[in-house]
């Protein structure tokens, strides 16, 4: 038996919005520790790694490890049937379930709805991701990162990210012309609008802007985003989900032939 409750459905809606455009389907791996999802997009250029720890749930019970193959568009349809303030409970009866239930309870308990979703068998590749000491780790406001990705996406398909001690620079060019946005490190590191850079050595990397824009769907989850970069390895873009977990996106760089 698996049962997990969250006091507010809003957080699960935001998590789903952050992954549903990148992934069609994914296995939700449920253990005593929590729920994990690791899946690549169809083209195997990017990867989503989601973790929701059990101690972040209002109630969490997982008697046996189980894997739930979820069609994310279907789950998004169901989540849209909840109000943001609803309590949500995810429930699966069997050890090897072929369906999962979502129960939404209004805050005054006067409205209770439940939706049953069929699960699917997903045979997906799992990647081993090594722990990496990155050359540059940048923390910046998530809304600023989203704005830059959206603005620069108009100019070209590729976005060049350069990071040095002075700051982080985003550049692109195309038929229309070129664009550059530079952010300097801020002095007050504690604020939500802070830009902080930890650097071992400067880095310049090129990425497909389209994927970065997909990642920014996670912006409502966190006021800050963390970018970790080293030359010629995938970019890590990380958003915290309150105190209960995080969503990590990895993106393979474009490399000169």
């Amino acid at each position: 038996m698996f049962e997990a409750s969250l006091a507010q459905s809003a957080i699960l809606k935001k998590v789903l919005d952050a992954i549903k455009d990148l992934l069609n389907e994914a296995n939700f791996e449920c253990t005593d520790d929590g729920i994990k999802v690791q899946a690549m997009d169809n083209s195997h250029v990017s990867l989503v790694s989601l973790e929701l720890r059990s101690d972040g749930f209002e109630k969490y019970r997982c008697d046996r490890n189980l894997s739930m193959g979820v069609n994310l568009a279907s789950m998004a349809k169901i989540m849209r049937c909840s109000s943001n303030s609803d309590k949500v409970t995810i429930k699966a009866q069997d050890d090897n379930p072929d369906k999962v239930s979502f129960i939404f309870e209004s805050s005054n308990q006067e409205r209770i709805s439940d939706y049953e979703m069929k699960l699917m068998d997903i045979d997906a590749d799992q990647l081993g991701i090594p722990d990496t000491e990155y050359s540059c780790v940048v923390k910046m406001p998530s809304a600023e990162f989203a704005r830059i990705c959206k603005d620069l996406n108009q100019f070209g398909e590729s976005l060049v990210i350069s990071c040095s001690k002075e700051g982080i620079k985003f550049s692109t060019s195309g038929d229309l012309g070129s664009a550059n946005v530079k952010l300097a490190q801020t002095t007050d590191a504690d604020k939500d609008d802070a830009v902080t850079i930890e650097m071992r050595s400067p880095v310049t990397l090129t990425f497909a802007c389209r994927y970065l824009n997909h990642f920014t769907k996670a912006t409502p989850l966190s006021s800050q985003v963390q970018l970790s970069m080293s030359d010629e390895i995938p970019l890590l873009v990380e958003y915290r989900i309150g105190d209960m977990g995080c969503i990590k996106y990895y993106l393979a760089p474009k490399i000169d032939d």
Binding site: S43, H44, V45, L47, G128, I233, P234, Y250, K254, D257
Partner: peptide, 14 residues
């Protein structure tokens, strides 16, 4: 000219 790599060229399959 740069070309897009896939993640499987950086991370190993489990």
């Amino acid at each position: 000219r740069s070309s897009q790599r896939t993640l499987t060229s950086f991370f190993s399959l489990n």
